[in-house]
Design a protein around this nucleic acid. Structure first.
Lengths: 229, 229
DNA sequence: GAGTGGTCTAGACCACCAA
DNA sequence: TGGTGGTCTAGACCACTCC
């Protein structure tokens, strides 16, 4: 079954590019021209081309027109789900243990990342996430108590991860991925050898007004993050 | 400066959700209603809502209407650039060395991933990518010669990575990220200790007709992949 | 069955920017 | 400064899916 409407135009343009009918660097016909060729309104062509531009296949500029990208920087969409759903999606039973929950002066990297004054005291939560009772990820979180607007949730019931997502909507954030050797405390918590290669996720989030949290997740060995390309 | 047009509507709806005027799980007003409230055409509201749905903030279904997502699975857009541009973007000079280039029977994991018969002979390329002369990434690539349509490029001049991107447009692919301890040959090439934690990228790409390549990239220690959230 | 979002149209105005 | 994409409108029909 062929797609219809704007998707068929997106696919046709994409096919012509793959077939090198329109080669990298070429300027391709304008929206008005394509609209006539395909017998649709210009808005329909625009919708299709906007999709292709979003995936990096073409580059568009007013007046200059639309060009086939020379070195298309492919864009992949990552789904960052709540850990419980991620585990349950694997068909495993989720549970978690709070290893530590206390106020503590945040170290320089954390306050720097969140844009807080040095020595700020934050709530530190260390949590172990489990899948079918096996360690899945070790979480080291610094939480700005001022962002919790008077609520004092019990994170032994609902993980901080999940509680924040559904109770403290945020405006902006950034995320970074890296590989690190397991430090002693992480190794103990995850039950791996010291120095074992772990996939690490670093995330920081803010509302308009203030920082919310900075969290580092050490995933158990074997963890893979996948995406379509 | 406030955004105008559909972006202002996207931001206003987003703000109402963050302010919990519309709480997670709530059904929010329909497009027609919002169009009247904001004094715009329904298509403009639709554009704004489509954007919010794409980032996972809201969920939309015909007839059921639009709801604020309960556990928003945040979506992050990853830019997968050609390695040369990634290195040059850091302000470093890029170079690469081809360590190996020969025909070889692909091992089971590779043929399985590409969907080829066991024992298929592919072109194997091992390449070291350098930034300012320092190892940046070690690449282990299996290339389907049938996908090269009679061309026999010299990968000592242009890296296989870059040549493929600009000469063999592909239709689909997938990508996965993980952390692995450096195996002996990788450790030697990158100049790190055996077992050092490395960030690994696995990618496989296909045209409609056939598989193109399967490639594994071992990034030098300290590599971070970042994205806005 | 009926209400909602998904899409298309024909036309228009505008912002941007290469020439 | 003119051509191109970016956006908006008012209206319409349709597809999906909850009731």
């Amino acid at each position: 079954m062929q797609p219809q409407g704007w998707e068929s135009i997106r696919d046709e343009v994409s096919a012509r590019i793959r077939a090198r009918l329109w080669a990298p660097g070429d300027t391709i016909p304008g929206e008005e021209t394509l609209a006539q060729e395909f017998g649709v309104a210009r808005a329909t062509v625009n919708r299709a081309m906007r999709e292709l531009a979003a995936t990096g296949v073409i580059e568009r500029r007013r007046k200059a027109g639309t060009r086939v990208a020379l070195l298309p920087a492919r864009r992949a969409l990552l789904e960052i789900a709540v850990i419980r759903l991620e585990v349950e999606g694997k068909g495993a039973a989720y549970s978690h243990q709070v290893l530590e929950d206390r106020m503590e002066a945040a170290p320089p990297p954390v306050v720097a990342r969140l844009g807080l004054p040095a020595g700020t005291v934050l709530r530190r939560l260390r949590t172990l996430h489990l899948a079918d009772g096996q360690p899945w990820a070790y979480e080291d979180r610094w939480l700005n108590p001022a962002a919790l607007v008077g609520e004092a949730p019990d994170f032994t019931q609902v993980s901080a991860n999940e509680w924040l997502v559904s109770h403290v909507p945020y405006a902006t954030g950034d995320i970074a991925f890296s590989a690190e050797g397991a430090e002693p405390d992480v190794a103990v918590a995850l039950g791996v050898e010291e120095g074992a290669a772990l996939f690490v996720t670093d995330r920081a989030t803010w509302t308009e007004a203030q920082p919310i949290t900075s969290v580092r997740l050490y995933h158990a060995p074997g963890y893979r993050m996948r995406s379509a390309l």
